[in-house]
């Protein structure tokens, strides 16, 4: 699926989830609270070894913490071990997520950035570490719990899941294991039929121009 379309869908989920003002109030307020706490004694807890790892050069549209969040979400949300599905680490999932986010309008992108920061940091209170350091099982539990939680929690988890799943399934390389054929007309050599002939008019002599 095209990134522009996915961005539209993400915006739509955002609208569905909450009124923007409401989100700014809850989301940014939450981030501010986390940041304030993090500046104090919890600052040590929110430190992550991943902070030392620089994102790849292509990740210019994501902050370092956003990159690590999506990279961890990719691994957590797409556990294909034991199936014939394509390993998500071989598919440019996070690059595709970045492309989708590039299409978001500036205010939505800013709000989403605040929401992602909240999602990553708020886990410190419940698990003693950030989302990016949660072991996969606990991270999945978090997704499922928030998926049934408050409006803010549901919206954030839905957006992250939608972004990661779309980033994966938009790649034609992921289709063959599902046996979805993708585009077939060219592969099958289908003849092109062109325009339909003009209906016959009794008073007119009609004809088809030949190519």
């Amino acid at each position: 699926m095209n990134s522009q379309l996915q961005a539209t869908q993400i915006s739509k989920i955002w609208q569905r989830g909450m009124a923007r003002r409401q989100f700014l109030k809850w989301g940014l307020g939450g981030v501010a609270a986390v940041t304030a706490v993090a500046a104090g004694s919890f600052a040590l807890l929110r430190r992550s070894p991943r902070d030392e790892i620089a994102p790849p050069d292509w990740a210019t549209g994501l902050s370092a913490s956003e990159y690590h969040l999506f990279e961890h979400a990719r691994a957590v949300l797409l556990p294909v071990e034991g199936t014939n599905l394509i390993d998500s680490s071989t598919v440019p999932v996070v690059q595709n997520v970045q492309q989708i986010l590039d299409y978001l309008d500036a205010p939505t992108r800013k709000e989403l950035g605040a929401g992602l920061s909240l999602f990553d940091n708020v886990v410190v209170f419940s698990h003693g570490c950030r989302f990016v350091d949660l072991e996969p099982g606990k991270a999945r539990e978090l997704f499922d719990r928030w998926g049934e939680g408050s409006v803010l929690q549901r919206t954030l988890t839905t957006v992250i899941k939608q972004l990661v799943y779309s980033g994966y399934w938009q790649e034609p390389a992921t289709w063959p294991p599902t046996e979805f054929d993708g585009p077939v007309s060219e592969k099958w050599g289908l003849a092109y039929l062109g325009n339909a002939p003009l209906p016959q008019q009794p008073s007119l002599e009609s004809g088809q121009e030949q190519a």
Partner: peptide, 25 residues
């Protein structure tokens, strides 16, 4: 097609999603 299932189908996390999508056929 598969991506359309995201809009109409299960959006659970992890294995539940993988199980849902791998059963497309």
């Amino acid at each position: 097609e598969p991506e359309s299932l995201l809009a109409q189908g299960d959006m659970k996390a992890g294995k539940a999603h993988i199980d849902f999508m791998k059963d497309y056929k």
